[in-house]
Amino acid sequence: MKATIEVVCYKSKVLANNESPLMLRITKDRKLKYSSIGISVNPAHWDFEKNKPRRNCPDKARIEQIISEQIRKYREQILDFQAEDKEFTSTSLYDRVNNQIKRRTVSDLFKSHIANLKAQKRTGYALTFSELYNSLILFHGHLDIHFSDIDVTWLRHYEAWLRFRGSAENTIGKRFRTLRAVFNLAIEQGIVKAEYYPFKIYKVSKLHQTPAKRAISKEDIMKVINYQCTDPYDRLAVDLFTFGYFMGGINFGDMASLKSENIVDGRLVYIRRKSNHLFFKRDPAVGENFAAILKRTDIEKGVYN
């Protein structure tokens, strides 16, 4: 049976101001579900045959706008159910729409995602989202908005604001790539519909500037590796540089977290904190090199011999 959505004046209930509440009535399979839309009218100003405010009703245009918006949300959800080939009742329809109305804000998702990353000990990645969150707060004043509010115009204003503050091109690109990741997460969690995705039009790829290559020669690298010193802290710096170089540029944060258990059959095996991906190096000398560092280091006592 087809569902019907309409707003009725609930005249059997009279409020203190002598008005009656307007109720959304959902009818499906001969079962009714009522929900207040938060406004009331004097029954004398309501046309009960046509279920709409009379011409002399105060604030008629505003009331009609609210009614139209309420009915539109339910009709859209009915179309979604039909597209998904899902059966629904008047109650399940109400519950689905009600959850959408109370969907999480941009601020809510940022805070929960940052907390999850910190719980996973992905502190560097969490910092990236925290920096974006703080930047957006400075730009907009607050993030108690919905993701559907972030459209192409909003993004362009944010880009212009960043440029006005003198942000570098790659910094702007990083901000927008992170914001795009948050928006994708919101779609994945059902917080916002994919149709509101603004990055189909606003291209983040344009916000990239290839930095000048910064590298030292192989000769200079070997000078560091072969540097002779007696100071234990200088020796530690050389050892860590050498280890990082031969391990393909391992992140220092990951290096600092390594233990002897990370050496498996002469290979370095570890999970990168930033991406949570498994990495390993096949260099047969890795076990020997790392063991040498550990032998000279007593981390618990802060001693390096």
Score class of each variant (00 low, 15 high):
1 M>A: 10
2 K>V: 14
4 T>L: 08
7 V>T: 02
8 V>W: 12
11 K>I: 11
16 A>K: 13
21 P>Y: 04
22 L>Y: 05
22 L>I: 06
24 L>G: 03
28 K>N: 07
32 L>V: 15
41 V>A: 02
44 A>I: 11
45 H>G: 06
46 W>M: 06
47 D>V: 00
49 E>Q: 14
50 K>S: 05
53 P>E: 01
55 R>Q: 14
57 C>Y: 01
62 R>N: 10
65 Q>L: 13
68 S>N: 07
71 I>A: 07
73 K>N: 12
75 R>H: 15
76 E>F: 13
77 Q>T: 04
77 Q>N: 08
80 D>G: 04
85 D>P: 03
85 D>E: 09
86 K>E: 10
87 E>I: 12
90 S>P: 01
92 S>I: 03
98 N>Y: 10
99 N>L: 13
101 I>Q: 13
103 R>A: 09
107 S>E: 11
110 F>N: 02
110 F>Y: 05
111 K>V: 13
111 K>D: 08
117 L>M: 06
121 K>I: 07
121 K>M: 12
123 T>V: 14
125 Y>C: 14
130 S>K: 15
133 Y>F: 07
133 Y>I: 02
134 N>P: 05
140 H>F: 10
144 D>H: 13
147 F>H: 11
149 D>M: 07
150 I>F: 12
151 D>L: 05
151 D>M: 00
152 V>C: 02
153 T>E: 08
154 W>M: 04
154 W>C: 05
157 H>M: 09
160 A>V: 11
169 E>V: 01
174 K>F: 06
180 R>D: 00
185 L>A: 08
185 L>C: 04
187 I>Q: 05
194 A>C: 06
196 Y>C: 02
198 P>M: 00
199 F>D: 00
200 K>C: 04
201 I>L: 03
203 K>F: 00
209 Q>G: 00
214 R>N: 10
215 A>M: 11
220 D>L: 13
220 D>T: 15
221 I>Y: 08
223 K>Q: 13
238 V>A: 03
238 V>M: 02
238 V>L: 09
242 T>R: 05
245 Y>H: 13
246 F>T: 11
248 G>T: 01
248 G>I: 01
248 G>Y: 00
251 N>T: 10
257 S>R: 10
258 L>W: 06
259 K>D: 09
265 D>Q: 15
268 L>C: 02
269 V>S: 09
270 Y>M: 02
271 I>V: 15
275 S>D: 04
276 N>I: 04
282 R>C: 11
284 P>H: 02
286 V>F: 15
286 V>L: 15
287 G>C: 01
288 E>N: 12
292 A>V: 07
294 L>E: 12
298 D>A: 01
299 I>S: 12
304 Y>M: 10
305 N>D: 14
